[in-house]
Amino acid sequence: MMTLAHTKYIVLAALIFCLTPIFSQAEGLIADQKFKADNEIFVTFSGAVDRAVAENIANYTVFEEPDPDIQLELESATLSEDSTRVSLRFKEPLNTAMTHVVSIRGLAGIDKTTFTVSKSYLGYLFGILISALLINNFVFTKYLGLCVFFGTSKKKETAKGMGVVFTLVMVVSALMSWFFYNFILIPYDLNFLQIVVFIGLVSLTVQAVDTVLRKVNPILFNSFGVFLVLVIANCVIIAVPLILANNNYNVFETFMLALGAGGGFLLALYLMSSVSERMQLAKIPPTFKGLPIAFIVAGQFAMAFLGFSGLQIF
């Protein structure tokens, strides 16, 4: 099993190699740049700079990378004692999940110095995962996949099976959709075929997983096979490809989003099924039996999940 162990390290090394260019982006004059408080960007210069230039907020333009038209308003720019570090304070809190582009005019005689500020890439990827899992949970905050959600959340066992199968299909089909979107739909200008292509890919994935699982692991197929049909009727599975196409996600972001969406669905199903099992013993008014009470419980979960909004780990 030596070869297998080595493969793991090679893959890991390749992954790190792919990610390194993103970490080393400091340019000549700028030594370091980072977000500090949620309304502050902290820039370190490689040498002392002109105080008059660096402290004049009219010299700075800052915007989020996707929309250059919306310039963020600065409140103050404070230079440190040794004139090498400047702290930019903004009037409104920044959305630190976004890459910010900062340009300074007239610094060290150069007409315009431009650099980007972003959080570490792994942190950003992890942010996407957490966001899809908790903050924008597909069931409780985006209201997707409800038919299957209410159908399969009666027992814990079913919930777990459905969640795992769903996550698996989700990741595979999202990666395939990403590939098709970037290498076929965009180059040939077939963007309007999005819906047809994505739903076709999802059906194909489900069929493929069905066939492979049946041959490779019949025992697993017997316990999970029934959920595969349900996966296709779930709108989350088509929502994820549409979201990644809308946001132009790269392959790592796509993977994280799909994992978060699947995990979030699993989490929602498990929570709901735990409550459902307890509810079978409770005395519920006859008019509320069945779906109505399930909706009320889901509403309470949705309110609880509102508490995650604004959560930031990195």
């Binding site: 509320f288 109505p292 509403g299």
Partner: peptide, 22 residues
């Protein structure tokens, strides 16, 4: 108007229709 109220409104309306039927 809050998003999570959608669940409550649909649930209560379903219960209401059930009640009318009963």
């Amino acid at each position: 108007i809050l998003p999570s109220a959608g669940f409550f409104v649909v649930g209560l309306m379903m219960a209401f229709f059930n009640w009318i039927e009963v």
